[in-house]
Nucleic acid binder design. Structure first.
Length: 266
DNA sequence: GAAAAGATTAAA
DNA sequence: TTAATCTTTTCC
């Protein structure tokens, strides 16, 4: 059917109600939350009290990464999502004392019937249309925080979903946030798990990833081989976009979400 | 103003 | 296979 005509990117007639933009800043010191209940997530808006936190000096682990893998600049992201997605593989996500290596991603693009930007600019999706290099975090199924990296230039509605990561440091914090004492792929294979491990809420949406503090993306080793496949969980989209091979993963990595049997060499 | 659906996960 | 859980978007 003809469902493809309204997907055009909207003009300025759309009103943009400003999303809640309380960008939380965290210092370079490592924060350890003593409160032990990873089950009930803290309600957005009530950031955990500063006084309840135990501040620990930055460890050598972070210094090593900052030295060898510097934070990526804004320029890195100003390309189309299909190019940015595979380039994000192997890069590092850093927040608090947690460092994750990106192992699986999906590209979402303009004129893409699976992209959140398909309805134009809204309060939720405004960051997607902003300049590349910012986070787009949204609540999925009322439960899961999904982290995207906004791609391309301002005005273009494109982003890359982070589907899976491998743990690099901060394993205890990851396990505590996940409520799971495992080192196996079940810990971080899935977009909801990544968001939970990083301690994200929708307040982190639109957070710049190219400036020090809070959530950052650091440079990392380029993977030797990459596999591609159709994106996951978008059955509502048009066949053309359901079948598009816009899912990318590091070949051979165990840190990849299901289904794995749809991934092939490009 | 009401209702359906969702870029998922964990447990039965 | 299904419940959990709630915001966003659409429909009347």
């Amino acid at each position: 059917m003809n469902k493809k005509k309204k997907i055009q990117q909207t003009d300025k007639s759309v009103k943009i109600t400003n999303p809640t933009k309380t960008i939380r800043k965290s210092s370079t010191t490592i924060k350890v939350k003593p409160q032990p209940k990873p089950k009930s997530r803290a309600k957005p808006g009530s950031s955990f009290q500063e006084k309840d936190e135990i501040l620990v000096p930055t460890t050598s682990v972070s210094s090593v990464f900052l030295e060898r893998f510097p934070i990526l600049s804004s320029d890195f992201y100003q390309i189309e999502a299909l190019d940015l997605a595979p380039r994000l593989l192997g890069k590092y996500l850093k927040k608090d004392d947690v460092v994750l290596q990106i192992t699986e991603v999906e590209a979402y693009r303009p004129n893409d019937s699976a992209c959140h930007g398909r309805f134009g600019i809204t309060a939720r999706t405004a960051p997607v249309f902003g300049p590349g290099g910012h986070a787009y975090v949204y609540l999925c199924y009322g439960l899961h925080m999904m982290l995207n990296v906004v791609a391309d230039k301002e005005g273009v509605g494109a982003a890359v979903l982070i589907r899976s990561c491998a743990p690099v440091s901060g394993l205890e914090t990851i396990q505590q946030r996940r409520g799971l004492k495992s080192e196996k792929p079940v810990l971080l294979t899935g977009p909801g798990k990544v968001g939970q491990a990083l301690g994200l809420s929708t307040e982190w949406s639109n957070h710049p990833l190219f400036t020090p503090g809070g959530l950052e993306v650091l440079d990392g080793p380029e993977p030797e081989k990459i596999v591609v496949g159709p994106r996951v969980g978008i059955e509502y989209a048009s066949p053309e976009h359901v079948n598009a091979l816009w899912r990318f993963a590091i070949a051979g990595s165990p840190w990849i979400s299901a289904p794995k049997n749809t991934l092939r060499p490009p």
